[in-house]
Computed example of a mutant assay.
Amino acid sequence: MKITEPKSEALNKVEEPSTEYVVYSYADYLTWEFDEMVELIKGKIFKSAAAAPRRIHQKVSGNIFTKLHVFLKNKPCDVFSAPFDVRLPVKSKRNEDIFTVVQPDISVICDKSKLDDLGCIGAPDLIVEILSLGNNSKELRDKYEVYEESGVKEYWVVLPYEWALLIYTLIDGKYVPSKLFTVGDIVESKCISGFKLDLDEVFDEPD
């Protein structure tokens, strides 16, 4: 964390927030200055596992983002890539009452009333998360839960090292998984009408 210490008042030193289970809000989040990306999920801090995503993660993310960006040109939906704050309020949109703030790899928002200078407040229509090597429990368990609870219509989980993609579609408030798609498949979004993605073009440089 970057800490600015007053020249003459060491007692005013800014402390890095504890990563133990202390409940933090978006109001707290706005005061932090971490070197790495952090997210809040139900009031708990989650730090990025690495200083920067690996090359294949960025390659796959760029391929998907480009396809969405081109498709959505002159359409009512907007697409954003991380870092981009998505706040998921439960009862109130006040900063001190929001306890989940995530930075999905890719977000598509069709209700532009949810967009403001700070990012998005409310559930995007489509979220894409690209898994990294190692522990992915945050995406597979914690984010799955808050995306389902907050009403994200589609949650795409991309496994770049397995050249695979899984789509969770929200039906009657619960996620229903697709089959596991891989190279040779063309996937289609149910919430972004007409959008299709050729996975041969997503995984065009398999490692």
Rank of each mutant, 00 (worst) to 15 (best):
G151P: 06
I3W: 02
K91N: 11
K75H: 07
S107M: 00
M1A: 15
K153N: 06
E149L: 06
V146K: 04
V60H: 09
D116C: 06
N135V: 12
K153E: 12
K112G: 04
Y168G: 00
D111G: 05
Y24L: 10
F84L: 15
V108M: 05
L180D: 05
F80W: 07
D28R: 11
S150C: 11
K114Q: 15
I45Q: 07
T66V: 09
E9L: 14
E145W: 05
S61T: 13
R54E: 13
V23F: 01
P83I: 11
P76I: 13
E148Q: 15
V102W: 05
Y155H: 10
I3D: 08
V152A: 00
K153C: 01
L165P: 01
K179W: 02
S107C: 05
A123P: 00
V102P: 04
A52M: 04
I186N: 04
F46A: 04
V176L: 09
V146W: 00
N12C: 04
F65S: 12
H57I: 11
A123W: 01
P89M: 05
G151W: 05
S137V: 10
D116N: 15
L180A: 03
K13I: 13
T19Q: 14
E162V: 03
P17S: 07
K73G: 12
A52S: 12
F34V: 01
R141F: 12
A49C: 01
A82S: 15
G134N: 11
R87L: 08
V108C: 07
V146R: 08
A52F: 13
P124K: 07
R141V: 14
C110G: 09
D198K: 11
K138Y: 06
S61A: 15
Y29R: 01
E33G: 10
D207L: 14
E16L: 14
D185I: 03
V60Y: 07
W156C: 09
L72M: 12
T100I: 01
I192V: 14
Y175R: 02
V202K: 02
Y24P: 02
F99A: 01
V90F: 09
K42W: 00
L72Q: 12
F71K: 13
K174I: 10
V128K: 02
E20I: 03
F84G: 11
K174T: 13
Y21A: 15
F34W: 10
A82R: 02
D200L: 06
V108Y: 03
D172A: 14
I64R: 07
K179Y: 03
V128A: 07
K59E: 15
E201H: 08
S107I: 02
D125H: 03
K75G: 03
S150H: 13
P6A: 10
G151R: 03
N136T: 11
S107D: 00
V202H: 08
E205H: 13
F181Y: 15
E36W: 08
Y168N: 14
S189V: 07
N12P: 00
K75D: 06
T169K: 13
Y29Q: 04
